[in-house]
Amino acid sequence: MLLVAWLAAVPWTRQRAVSAWRRGRLRRRWDRACRFAGLATVNDRIPRIVRHREVPAGDRLMVRVPKGSERAELEEAAERVAAVLRVRQIRITRDVERADLAHVDVVRRDPFDGTDPRMPARLPWPWRDRRQVSLWDPVPVAVDDMGDTITLSLPGRHVLIGGEPEAGKSTALSAVLAAGALDPNVRLIGLDAKRLELALWRPVFDRLVFNNMGDAIDTLDELIGEMDRRYEHLEQAGRRSWRPSDGPLYLVPIDELRFYTACEDRKAREAFNARAIDLAARGRAAGDDPRARDAEAEHGRGAVQLPGSAGGAVGDALLNAGCLRHDSGRGLGHQRLQRRRDRHQHARRGVAAGRRRPSPAVQELLPE
């Protein structure tokens, strides 16, 4: 009796005891739900929980399906399992390495409705109390719909941040900048046409350029020169990628990228675009990491706003200039895309009037 009272009085033991009781209760209810849903095999085996973690929206499980069964059967019975567990939803995804394992999200509540004390209205950044971090480690940038932290590995990737007004672009950019500022082995070079977002971080930047196209082009020239020197170092070392011991990383955030890529001065615009393409295409392995945050994303027109990329595809997106459009300054790729659209519209009018038949290439691009 005294032992039970002591366990209940000490906070950390009480929390662990409550967590163990919840895990056991979930396992018993899961087993019962699988049997009610008809997931038991001929040998009376059911999917078993092998890993369990509590998150603000509910539980995240790793489940092993029994021999003779498959993940698709569990996915088909997800609604029946959710009904027995009396939860909002059951989401199931396959493990990328093993076919007998499935990742199961048990959604019990909305983590953003303000009722869960673990998810306050203002979420503190997980690294807020750290004195020093490494940009080679995954950086926490957001939370998913389960209330779990989402991290982003920055070295070797380009990042494009876009969205509607008030969508949180500045918050996402601030998380990346804060991580770079806390790493002593990172050089911050920024371009901010609006002179607002990055200006607040001026003390941590090694160089910061505002709405001056000449300074922006000179900055990209310096980065390309550093990139070439690093590739010479990699060639002499017989390696393909940059390592932390080779030198600092360069983090290059660009705010309001369309100002530079769609500048009214044609020569300055073309000079900036050519250097941005070179830096985005070749800078990844050399440790030069461009990040782009554009203003409002255009909806309904399929516009891609810039040279930046998610997953390192910015260089390819820029080279395929027909996929880019800038409506205000008639920037990179607009004329080529507009000519292609005009040809397709003319071909459709011709087909409707019965005057001529479009070529096979145009037929593939026309809607059914």
Rank of each mutant, 00 (worst) to 15 (best):
A5E: 06
A8R: 11
A8C: 05
A9Q: 07
W12Q: 14
R16A: 03
A20S: 04
R22Q: 15
R28A: 04
D31H: 02
R32C: 01
C34E: 01
L39P: 00
V42I: 07
V42D: 12
R48V: 15
R53C: 00
E54D: 08
A57T: 10
R60V: 12
M62W: 07
R64Y: 03
V65C: 04
P66T: 13
S69I: 09
E70F: 04
L85Q: 14
I92T: 14
T93Q: 13
D95E: 03
V96R: 15
L101Q: 05
R109I: 10
R109Q: 13
D110A: 01
D110H: 12
P111D: 08
G114T: 14
R118Y: 10
P120H: 03
A121H: 09
L123K: 15
P124R: 11
W127T: 13
R128V: 01
R128A: 02
D129S: 08
R130W: 04
D145G: 09
T149L: 05
L152C: 10
L154V: 15
L154A: 03
P155M: 14
R157G: 01
V159L: 14
V159M: 08
I161Q: 06
A178P: 04
A178D: 12
A179S: 08
G180N: 02
V186Q: 02
L188F: 02
G190H: 05
L191D: 05
D192I: 09
A193S: 12
R207E: 15
R207H: 11
L208H: 12
N212D: 15
M213L: 10
I217F: 01
T219M: 10
M227P: 00
H233M: 15
G238R: 05
R239L: 10
S241H: 14
S245G: 14
D246S: 07
G247D: 01
P248K: 06
L249E: 06
Y250G: 03
P253A: 03
P253R: 13
P253Q: 09
L257P: 01
F259L: 09
Y260N: 00
T261M: 08
C263A: 11
C263M: 06
D265F: 04
D265L: 03
K267H: 10
K267G: 07
R269Q: 14
E270H: 01
F272K: 09
A280G: 10
G287H: 06
D288P: 03
R291L: 13
A292I: 08
A295E: 11
A295D: 15
E296L: 12
A297K: 13
R301K: 13
A303S: 11
Q305S: 14
P307L: 14
A317S: 09
N320D: 14
G322D: 15
G322Y: 08
L324W: 05
R325P: 00
H326C: 01
S328E: 10
G331Q: 07
L332I: 12
Q335D: 08
L337V: 02
Q338A: 09
Q338H: 11
R341M: 04
R343L: 02
Q345I: 12
H346T: 11
A347Q: 11
G350M: 12
V351W: 03
S359P: 03
P360H: 09
A361G: 08
Q363E: 06
E364I: 10
L365I: 07
P367E: 07
